[in-house]
């Protein structure tokens, strides 16, 4: 099972500390949510975990420092769905999902039967098989979000990092995507998801990391981490906590006046 850890990880951008001394370790089979206010450094943290931005501190992927691994090795081990992925070319949906197989292809080789099977599995999982022949730049935002998730799933990597996979999805598809992530974790994949919906995070994640101004301020089970005091301190909101039919519910109610500007 894959193991990913960060030790005293910091990222600076233009002299500003964006990720500040973050340490944690994770193993396959878990769905880990990263939450925090806008600008807390969530996306930068996951980019650093993938070696996409220069960082200080140590990142170990299966016990080997990330810097000692080639881009190709990292891509084979960790699939990544960036936030707000833009498309620069009018590819068909099927070709776009097939890009997920690139980390496994040798130069000048073509997609094999196994690759086709992985692409088909990913498209079924993300519910996009009916879109296969459409042009990816001409489908709706919600459809595109699911197609891009299918692209990440097609890598079939032991770890999957998704950055705001629920943006522009309707409630039914938000739940569907969280179910997919849950199922991936159940199969032994390490899933790290940057999320904004605290209710869905509380309900689906095994563990939640709370980031605030680049620092890791809480790390643990949803019930231990998502508390009224934590939400007031981190987001500056009062929230209602409860449970409906055994499902945890978090509803932000008002901005906390003490934190207001």
């Amino acid at each position: 099972m894959v193991a990913l850890s960060a030790d005293r990880l910091s990222v600076r951008r233009a002299r500003r500390v964006v990720v500040d001394d973050v340490s944690f370790a994770a193993e396959g089979g878990a769905l880990i949510g990263i939450v925090g206010p806008n600008g807390a450094g969530k996306s930068t943290l996951v980019q650093a975990l993938l070696g996409l931005v220069p960082a200080t501190g140590a990142i170990l992927l299966d016990g080997v420092p990330l810097a000692e691994r080639s881009r190709r090795e990292i891509a084979q081990t960790v699939a990544y769905l960036p936030q707000g992925q833009s498309l620069h070319w009018p590819l068909s949906v099927e070709r776009l999902v097939a890009l997920g197989r690139l980390p496994h292809l040798a130069p000048l080789s073509r997609i094999s039967r196994d690759d086709h099977a992985a692409i088909a599995r990913a498209m079924v999982a993300a519910d996009v098989t009916t879109l296969a022949a459409r042009v990816a730049t001409e489908i709706s935002g919600g459809e595109r979000a699911r197609v891009l998730l299918a692209r990440a799933l097609a890598v079939e990597a032991p770890a999957l990092i998704v950055d705001e996979p629920l943006a522009s999805l309707d409630p039914a598809h938000q739940i569907a995507v969280m179910d997919i992530l849950r199922a991936q974790a159940a199969r032994g994949v390490l899933v790290i998801a940057v999320l904004h919906d605290l209710g869905l995070a509380a309900r689906y994640c095994d563990r939640i990391l709370v980031l605030d101004a680049g620092r890791l301020v809480a790390d643990g089970a949803p019930s231990a981490v998502l508390t009224p005091a934590r939400l007031r301190e981190t987001y500056g909101v009062r929230a209602w906590f409860g449970s409906i039919e055994g499902v945890p519910v978090v509803v932000p109610l008002t901005r906390d006046s003490a934190q207001g500007d």
């Binding site: 980019q47 993938l50 996409l52 080639s70 881009r71 190709r72 090795e73 990292i74 891509a75 084979q76 990544y80 960036p82 992925q85 833009s86 498309l87 620069h88 070319w89 590819l91 070709r95 776009l96 890009l99 997920g100 690139l102 980390p103």
Partner: peptide
């Protein structure tokens, strides 16, 4: 070239040097 349809970061995340 195919990976670059996802932009430079997208291509790097797909293992492109």
């Amino acid at each position: 070239l195919d990976a670059l349809t996802l932009g430079e970061d997208g291509a790097r995340a797909l293992g492109v040097d």
